[in-house]
Design a protein around this nucleic acid. Structure first.
Lengths: 200, 200
DNA sequence: GCGCACCATGGCACACAGTGACGTCCGGCG
DNA sequence: CGCCGGACGTCACTGTGTGCCATGGTGCGC
């Protein structure tokens, strides 16, 4: 038994989530969060670089799962198929945490500052994905467009899944959206000179 | 002759741009900007809601041009064609301001906080575009995916245009990228033959 | 059991962003 | 001339984020 209560970071995350739900993001100070977690303001910033990040630290595992899935997709899979696999893996991961992620998303959706941070996370996921796809031999432009389409599908599908009216599984929603977006980045019909050499 | 020097907002924007270029964004305080513009800190916040926005206020005209172009695209134009028109109009607008926008972009690209704001601007453009496309009769999913693809193309193309090594016109770059991303959001119903996403 | 170094935490001071309330100066207008 | 309104300044304040140093358990060697 350590003197300090265990899982300080987790306590901060829980405290933040509940306080944001109670009073909203802007009416909650870092001192409030730290107090509820039994710590001080100064310690909060030892676990999180800023106030927004307290809601996103846990999503690091999502990013890792996503990128690992892209990396380990079959060698002959197309770019879209690789992204599809990542979407499927993500859907599975979220399936049994719906209650938590819904609550979290509800807070984000009413707080511009948190929406900004969400955009940043998605954009960095897309950039990383584009790099991974290029390493698989995908053309640079195609890789970047497919990667961004993948995160867009994730975002749209997730928002739709979380809606109270929705009855479908996340995997189903993502699958449908990907089909809509598929053919995306089809091979350009007419051969034209590529500006940049492909990885070959 | 009014007592106050004219174009206070413009002076603030110019002062901010030059100071950010000299010392960087984080080493420039709002007081510094206001002082160079011959104003006080308090007045800065009367023209801009926050420090980041001083670099983005001028891009409001871009947003307006983009949305107007979508709105006034021919009735029979497809979603992708409407976005293509918006890209072309944007390219034309930027063509004769390359020096200014390059300098501005160089600052943004080394400042995470400004990159965040840029993502927000692009995301809100994409959301607005999706709404406009839906009003033209485009399916909701298709509209959202095409809209986000459009802003992605704009972002990627712009970054490539600004690179010192680049010799192509922005319009050309955007055109090529759009062709890569075209076929995007093909009609969802018919099963299309799978193709490798890489360039043959 | 006894020290001891480590490390999570607290305390303090500070710079800066952003905001509200209020005062001030100038031009215009009757 | 006197009044009004708008652009600007001054002051005070909250809250974020950070550097520096003190402190007090904890687990380790002995």
């Amino acid at each position: 038994m350590s003197r300090w209560a265990p899982d300080a970071q987790g306590r901060l995350e829980d405290a933040a989530l509940s306080l944001f739900a109670e009073r909203g993001y802007n009416d909650t100070t870092v001192a409030d969060i730290a107090e509820r977690a039994g710590l001080t303001r100064r310690s909060f910033f030892r676990y999180f670089p800023d106030k927004r990040e307290v809601l996103f630290a846990r999503s690091a595992s999502l990013t890792k799962l996503w990128e690992d899935t892209i990396t380990h997709a079959p060698k002959d899979a197309t770019a879209v198929e690789a992204v599809g696999a990542a979407l499927a893996a993500t859907a599975e991961m979220f399936a049994n945490r719906k209650k938590f992620v819904s609550k979290r998303q509800a807070i984000i959706n009413v707080t511009p500052e948190l929406q900004e941070r969400e955009l940043v996370k998605l954009a960095s996921m897309a950039d990383a994905t584009a790099v991974l796809l290029q390493e698989r031999g995908v053309d640079e432009d195609v890789a970047r467009l497919v990667a961004h389409m993948g995160t867009t599908v994730l975002r749209i599908g997730f928002d739709r899944w979380v809606e109270p009216a929705n009855k479908l599984a996340l995997a189903t929603i993502l699958q449908q959206l990907l089909e809509v977006g598929d053919g995306v980045v089809a091979t350009p019909s007419k051969p034209r000179p590529r500006r940049r050499a492909t990885v070959a």
